[in-house]
């Protein structure tokens, strides 16, 4: 009961935040009624997916300060579990998704245990290395389609199929992921106030102090890493049903890992709204830049150049992200 109450309790935020959040939430709920283009719809789904990825990353990366650049491997585990189970054994999404999460969590324990002996850049690069190893393995593993990947062909099913999550119209996908999005917010809101959340923030502050406060630092990190993993794997499973065509090169690439970390940082790592703000800025920017400059103007790569410049500016000028700027302005006003 207390858990539920804490998850739904946002009272420690200023009222302005809650008003804005309520406005955004209601906009998200009625967004499909506006009948924007299908491109806008796809962008919104991407935004919600990446918000969730970012929320997952934020638990370990933001609250815990452990820069993880290997989240794509868990996207892959979730996506592949769901695809394989659906294609081979016709297992519905609602079963394969928790199975995928279990696999991902299991893998996160296996690699997390040695991984968290490392700190700082060493940790970050090692997460990249594990992610690339897994990607290389998937690229030669015939059972999961090797480098060709897997394709869920929608003709076999009768959309709208709510069990298998096979739909013709994007609006169904939109509401499914929106549901997860709200659940994710409640979960993180509970997490940040939970025992583990407090321990993790203390670890970020000073590991020796945390240790002498009775916190098993290594285990707290491994646990939180598993939580972050579960988030990412869930969205990976959704990704499989939504995109229907997955291959190691784009599901598990380093770019996905970096994008996840980047959005959380752009928005403001270690705050509840940060990853959502980051995804809200970056995803539309990225897809529209690609559409206008890449596809229409024929300038290959220019979208990524602009995107790179944004990364560079943020990291050099305000590493605490957009939320950091908001907080700073607030504190200046209150002083």
């Amino acid at each position: 009961m207390e858990v539920l109450r804490n998850a739904l309790d946002f009272s420690d935020f200023p009222r302005v935040d809650l008003c804005v959040a309520a406005l955004v939430a209601s906009f998200l709920l009625i967004f499909p009624l506006f009948h924007f283009s299908s491109f806008a719809m796809a962008t919104m789904i991407q935004f919600l997916m990446f918000s969730l990825y970012g929320m997952g990353w934020n638990t370990i990366g933001g609250y815990g300060g452990q820069v993880d650049l290997g989240k794509a491997q868990y996207v892959g585990i979730g996506a592949y579990t769901t695809s394989v189970m659906l294609i081979r054994w016709d297992v519905p999404f609602w079963v394969s998704m928790p199975v995928g999460m279990s696999f991902a969590v299991l893998w996160s324990f296996i690699i997390g245990y040695p991984l968290f002996r490392l700190k700082g850049h060493y940790f970050a690069i090692a997460t990249i290395a594990t992610s690339l190893v897994l990607k290389d393995l998937f690229e030669v593993w015939d059972f999961v389609g090797a480098a060709r990947g897997l394709e869920i062909s929608p003709i076999k099913y009768h959309p709208p199929d709510f069990l298998r999550l096979i739909f013709k119209e994007d609006v169904y996908y939109y509401y499914v992921i929106l549901g997860f999005f709200f659940l994710g917010i409640f979960y993180v809101n509970w997490f940040r106030k939970s025992r583990l959340g407090f321990q993790l923030r203390s670890i970020k502050d000073n590991e020796d102090v945390a240790r002498s406060l009775g916190i098993n630092v290594h285990w707290a990190k491994v646990k939180t890493y598993a939580i972050a993993t579960a988030f990412v794997s869930l969205v990976g499973s959704f990704h499989a049903c939504y995109i229907k065509n997955i291959e190691p090169e784009d599901t598990m690439s380093l770019d996905i890992s970096i994008l996840i970390a980047l959005m959380a940082m752009l928005g403001g790592a270690g705050s509840l709204w940060g990853p959502i703000i980051g995804a809200g800025v970056l995803i539309p920017l990225k897809s529209y830049l690609k559409e206008w400059l890449g596809a229409k103007a024929g300038l290959v790569g220019i979208d990524l150049i602009i995107y790179a410049v944004i990364i560079m500016l943020i990291s050099a000028v305000e590493p605490r992200g957009i939320w950091g700027i908001v907080e700073k302005a607030r504190r200046r006003r209150s002083v």
């Binding site: 300060g65 990291s315 050099a316």
Partner: peptide
């Protein structure tokens, strides 16, 4: 974090 992502941005650029 900023240093890592910053040089990553440089790489993408």
């Amino acid at each position: 974090v900023a240093q890592l992502l910053g040089t990553f941005g440089l790489m993408l650029f």
